[in-house]
Simulated scan of single mutants.
Amino acid sequence: MRRLWKGLSSYTVIGVANTLIHWQIFFLLSVAAGLRQAISNLTAFCVAATFSFYMNALYTFDGRLSVGGYLLFMVAMGALSYGVGHAGDLWRLHGLLTVVMFSALSLVFGFLFSKYVVFRERDT
């Protein structure tokens, strides 16, 4: 079980910075610019995830950067981001609840997806 969550602490620290970036952009777009939550959440995710993908590649997953891995991560997690934002629009959730829900889902699913799909150890 310990091996499953190895790297979660550095992923979480980077995730805190990611969350601050994400939330600031989300609220700027949704409140100040009046955009829908789905678009605001997806745009904020793209900016914040680019930062965290690079930082996690360097500090959490031993520097295995690749364009394919980046695109895979962005598409999969971007779909989750848009879906949560869309649910927020449909259910007329407060924006804070939308980003809190996405942040929680992103921490768990993003870590597992990164560790076992995007940055998985390959046999040489």
Rank of each mutant, 00 (worst) to 15 (best):
residue 93 L to Q: 10
residue 34 G to P: 05
residue 119 F to W: 02
residue 27 F to V: 02
residue 118 V to Q: 02
residue 65 L to W: 15
residue 22 H to M: 10
residue 29 L to T: 02
residue 105 L to W: 03
residue 38 A to M: 09
residue 20 L to H: 12
residue 120 R to S: 06
residue 82 Y to T: 03
residue 62 D to N: 13
residue 22 H to Y: 15
residue 79 A to T: 09
residue 80 L to T: 05
residue 73 F to A: 13
residue 100 V to D: 02
residue 74 M to S: 07
residue 121 E to T: 15
residue 83 G to S: 07
residue 97 L to Y: 14
residue 95 G to R: 00
residue 34 G to Y: 08
residue 3 R to G: 13
residue 116 Y to P: 04
residue 72 L to M: 10
residue 75 V to Q: 05
residue 80 L to P: 04
residue 39 I to T: 12
residue 46 C to I: 09
residue 116 Y to C: 04
residue 82 Y to V: 06
residue 2 R to V: 13
residue 74 M to W: 04
residue 22 H to N: 14
residue 29 L to D: 01
residue 37 Q to W: 11
residue 63 G to E: 01
residue 73 F to K: 06
residue 15 G to C: 02
residue 23 W to A: 05
residue 29 L to A: 07
residue 24 Q to K: 14
residue 43 T to M: 08
residue 31 V to Q: 12
residue 81 S to N: 03
residue 33 A to F: 13
residue 93 L to S: 10
residue 48 A to H: 00
residue 41 N to C: 07
residue 56 N to L: 10
residue 91 W to Q: 14
residue 44 A to L: 02
residue 123 D to G: 15
residue 122 R to G: 08
residue 21 I to C: 05
residue 74 M to H: 05
residue 84 V to M: 03
residue 80 L to F: 11
residue 40 S to Y: 01
residue 87 A to R: 07
residue 27 F to W: 08
residue 119 F to R: 00
residue 62 D to W: 09
residue 119 F to H: 01
residue 3 R to H: 15
residue 112 L to Q: 08
residue 55 M to H: 04
residue 13 V to L: 10
residue 37 Q to K: 14
residue 69 G to E: 04
residue 113 F to A: 03
